[in-house]
């Protein structure tokens, strides 16, 4: 039986890649999309169909501006998060393989993986946020489906 410390464990070491950037890359754009759909849909639905009868105009005059502001804010947050994700990915990609005498496949690889996930997550959810925002431009606020 060997003492445990003699075994080579493919292990990790803390690195200096900013966790905030990785987290923003991973969850920023999804959060923006969640906020966008979670705010826009209920507001649009309630303003045009508050109780039992659909209305031809929204309850609140300022609703288009409010929805525009929400969507712009969400696009901004998604793009900002995407930028952070991109920055984290570049930072993770530049780090030399096997730094610090660790075998490759250690925390460096894990962080690169998370940064890559963040980058892709941002891309998909930026697209989703923009898709949703297009609805504001293309669809009448209180119109009924054809």
């Amino acid at each position: 039986m060997n003492p445990i410390s003699e075994l080579e464990v493919p292990a990790c070491r803390q690195n200096r890649l900013s966790p905030v950037r990785i987290l923003l890359g991973l969850f920023g754009a999804p959060a923006a999309w969640t906020a966008q759909i979670g705010l826009s849909e209920p507001l649009a639905a309630y303003a045009c169909y508050p109780y039992r009868t659909p209305l031809s105009a929204p309850l609140w005059e300022g609703l288009p501006w409010l929805l525009a502001a929400i969507n712009m804010a969400c696009i901004g947050l998604a793009l900002f998060s995407g930028g952070m994700g991109w920055s984290a990915w570049r930072q993770a990609g530049r780090r030399p393989v096997g730094a610090g005498g660790l075998p490759a496949g250690s925390s460096k690889e894990r962080n690169r993986f998370l940064a890559m996930l963040g980058l892709m997550s941002s891309f998909i959810f930026i697209a989703a946020v923009i898709f949703n925002a297009c609805a504001l431009l293309l669809v009448p606020l209180c119109g009924s489906p054809p």
């Binding site: 966008q36 759909i37 826009s40 849909e41 649009a44 639905a45 045009c48 169909y49 659909p54 949703n132 609805a135 504001l136 293309l138 669809v139 009448p140 606020l141 209180c142 119109g143 009924s144 489906p145």
Partner: peptide, 8 residues
């Protein structure tokens, strides 16, 4: 449901 709401 109103058109915009379902469009999202």
């Amino acid at each position: 449901l109103p058109a915009l709401a379902i469009s999202f």
